[in-house]
Design a protein around this nucleic acid. Structure first.
Lengths: 343, 343
DNA sequence: GTTACATCTGCAAGCGCTTACAGAATGGAT
DNA sequence: ATCCATTCTGTAAGCGCTTGCAGATGTAAC
């Protein structure tokens, strides 16, 4: 037995009737656009309050062609990496009254494309793509339809679209350089997933720093990782078992850095004293582990903010010239790296 | 100069024309409901593919009164706590083709209410509220309008609505009991924000365990925290400086537990050996710190999943009897707690 | 008193879809 | 041959909003 008081939705028409004006006028008041006399405005305002009207965004979206929603496509949410980016996005969006539609692809390309399709078909006014996996599939279509989008941490995948990233190469260069300053000459390096631009850039930074310091590149010291802790642990074990083992290990992200710490500890060596460890990202946990992990900070929240501002700008004016921003990384010195012990 | 090839959206009508049928038939094929002959179905399918039609969700939502969107309101995204819950939600939602609208309140009640208002006015078919701050403001209205919702980690705030939580009391009881088994009698306790139900429950669990073991409750050992690391650190310092200091400290969540670890280390004591430390939540970082933190796991992903299933059920049948589920917590023994050292 | 212009208001036509409803066609059962 | 049930298809009326347009009014300039 349904309750007798099934409340009907309050529509613009109800408000119009209540205020004794047309729906057009109510709409003008609600959106604060177009000519409305002081008198009518007051009557409508009162009616709005009295009826408790709440706009139906779907209807407005359909009628106006603008949804005030932006879509966000991320590969996952497990790491705080994404949480921090989203925080930046959210901060900007709230300020302008946009809403956020969240899609997680779990690294499956097909889902990425499917999500992108519905989103761009009227659901969202613009798209933010974090770490896109398969952008080729739709970027061309965006451009053709002039659909606003911005890539975050694109990693050089799309060379022509608007994007926000970090100075991964410079960050890795700075980090490696720091280790060199501390006297290290044999520096192990664990890469990220090499199909991702940021992983490639970080490796490049490492190599450039070595080269600049005149240290020969030793392929034995560079192992491929996947940005996850377990593989960081394994690869660190391999590095530690080298006959001429490294005195420092640079992990391409913090998660793998934690794996390295574990491996070093398991092998009976002291972190910092015997082996220096450097991470990348500066996730919150980096300051919680012991010893606190020295790392290269990536300004994730700022990246989210910058990308959102860029997107909003492009929604307002789709012909804004394409911008590509790389925000600066920053070395965060903690306690996992030390001057190399005497020879 | 706008490009000359501004592509127009493909609508149902375009497909209908292409397939030489009415829009009604196309709609029936697209939604796979109602009678359609094999022949028409094939023609439409072909036209669908040929035109590259993508449905406009706004229009469908407006026409059908169902948006296939569920709204998620969370206080923040900084901690992985929320990421894990969202993961569970996402898993369930993908399976049924629903989309997720994400709202972050940043702990501001007013924003919570505002978001809730738009969401329930046609934008979403149902709402998931995580750690709601001010549910009184709208729960009554939901019930009146029979709008589907489910609370996650409600903490006893809404005693009558559908909800999913964890056995916080039992978890804290188990944790405390474990410490008692290890021989600890003076157990410090740092609470969460006491206006939150889960914080209250955890404290209650602590007290019950003491009582059951016949250990008198010492208010000196119980300090109020806020679920964040810095205050965890401070309160731990206070506990450590007590004339008769505790041999174990139970922090109401892992973040504060990390603060406690820091404080213990700073005071020159050894974690585990001199002071046992117990956390709550089992966030990923708990296994990364050193020594790995013993903690009470909260099944966050499962909670997200359970809540979503419950919500979908209520959307399908709003009169489903109200369910209230508390998923079991589980003690995760690592290395931060040890048998008490000899007297 | 015209004219020109800005201000105001309502009418009504959509936006792209769903879904009664009605009518047509088909196939038994009688 | 008649009837009914079932399957199929199209017509058209919305869903709740925005917005172009036209008409009405007010005001300043001539």
């Amino acid at each position: 037995m349904a309750s007798s008081h099934e409340e009907r939705r309050i529509t613009l028409e109800d408000v119009a009737r209540e205020a004794n004006v047309s729906t057009a006028s109510v709409s003008r008041v609600v959106n604060n656009k177009g000519y409305v006399s002081e008198e009518v405005r007051n009557r409508v305002m009162a009616a709005l309050v009295r009826t408790g009207y709440v706009i139906n965004r779907q209807a407005r979206g359909l009628a106006s062609g603008k949804s005030q929603v932006i879509g966000l496509v991320v590969p996952e949410l497990e790491t705080s990496y994404f949480g921090e980016i989203i925080r930046g996005i959210d901060e900007e969006l709230v300020a302008v009254g946009y809403d956020l539609m969240l899609y997680t692809t779990h690294h499956r390309k097909q889902r990425e494309s499917a999500h992108v399709a519905t989103l761009t078909a009227g659901l969202a006014d613009g798209l933010l793509l974090v770490l896109p996996q398969d952008p080729g599939a739709y970027l061309e279509s965006f451009r053709r339809r002039r659909f606003p989008y911005v890539l975050i941490d694109h990693g050089g995948i799309d060379e022509t679209g608007p994007s926000v990233g970090a100075t991964n190469l410079q960050g890795a260069l700075d980090g490696t350089d720091y280790l060199i300053q501390l006297g290290h000459r044999r520096i192990g390096f664990i890469t990220g997933k090499m199909h991702m631009g940021c992983a490639v850039d970080r490796l490049a930074g490492y190599r450039q720093a070595l080269e600049a310091a005149g240290i020969p590149y030793d392929p034995e010291l560079v192992l491929e990782g996947d940005f996850h802790q377990p593989l960081g642990y394994q690869q660190a074990c391999r590095l530690l078992s080298l006959s001429h083992r490294p005195t420092a290990i640079f992990a391409s992200n913090d998660a793998m850095g934690f794996g390295v710490m574990e491996a070093v500890r398991d092998s009976g060596l002291r972190i910092g004293h015997d082996i220096s460890i450097l991470g990348f990202d500066n996730v919150p946990a980096a300051s919680m582990v012991h010893p606190p992990l020295t790392t290269v900070r990536q300004p994730l929240t700022e990246m989210g903010r910058a990308a959102t501002r860029m997107l909003l700008q492009r929604i307002a004016a789709p012909d804004t010239p394409v911008e590509r921003i790389d925000l600066p990384t920053e070395l965060v010195v903690r306690e996992s790296c030390r001057m190399i012990a005497g020879p």
